[in-house]
């Protein structure tokens, strides 16, 4: 349980929490999406790092090598990256639509406008 053997986890934890912090502390929707992307990359690290074996090589079979890194997490993360960019595109599209409807992508402004609208409706009735 020394620090050396668990250093990679420390990096992962730092990136994950940094992403989480951006998501919950920043009001800008695009900034939030960037935070989500950072969170996602920390998960890539979490999967890939334990698959590495010191002295191993990339999992492309050849007679010259005996020890390979673990290919299974590579496969999972490969799919995760592509799905990640697809969801990022979808989130950006939503942000653009919100910007068109509300003329802002700041969460606080959006909430304020929602409250205003509700109040106006009630007064109208």
């Amino acid at each position: 349980m020394s620090i050396g053997t668990h250093f990679s986890y420390a990096v992962t934890v730092f990136l994950m929490v940094a992403g989480l912090f951006i998501v919950i502390a920043r009001g800008n929707l695009i900034k939030k999406l960037v935070g989500l992307a950072i969170f996602q990359t920390s998960v890539y690290l979490l999967y890939i790092v334990p698959g590495k074996l010191i002295g191993g090589t990339a999992p492309i079979l050849d007679d010259r090598f005996k020890l390979y890194s673990n290919p299974l997490p590579h496969v999972l993360i490969l799919t995760a990256i592509v799905v990640g960019v697809a969801t990022l595109a979808l989130g950006l599209a939503l942000a653009v639509r919100i910007r068109e409807a509300y003329d802002t992508i700041e969460e606080d402004d959006i909430l304020a406008r929602d409250v205003d609208d509700c109040g106006a409706d009630r007064q109208g009735k």
């Binding site: 592509v82 697809a86 595109a89 950006l92 599209a93 653009v96």
Partner: peptide
């Protein structure tokens, strides 16, 4: 599929 989706998304953002 992947190249189709990426291109389509790019076109959508740009034309918008």
């Amino acid at each position: 599929t992947v190249s189709g989706v990426m291109l389509k998304v790019f076109y959508m953002f740009v034309s918008r």
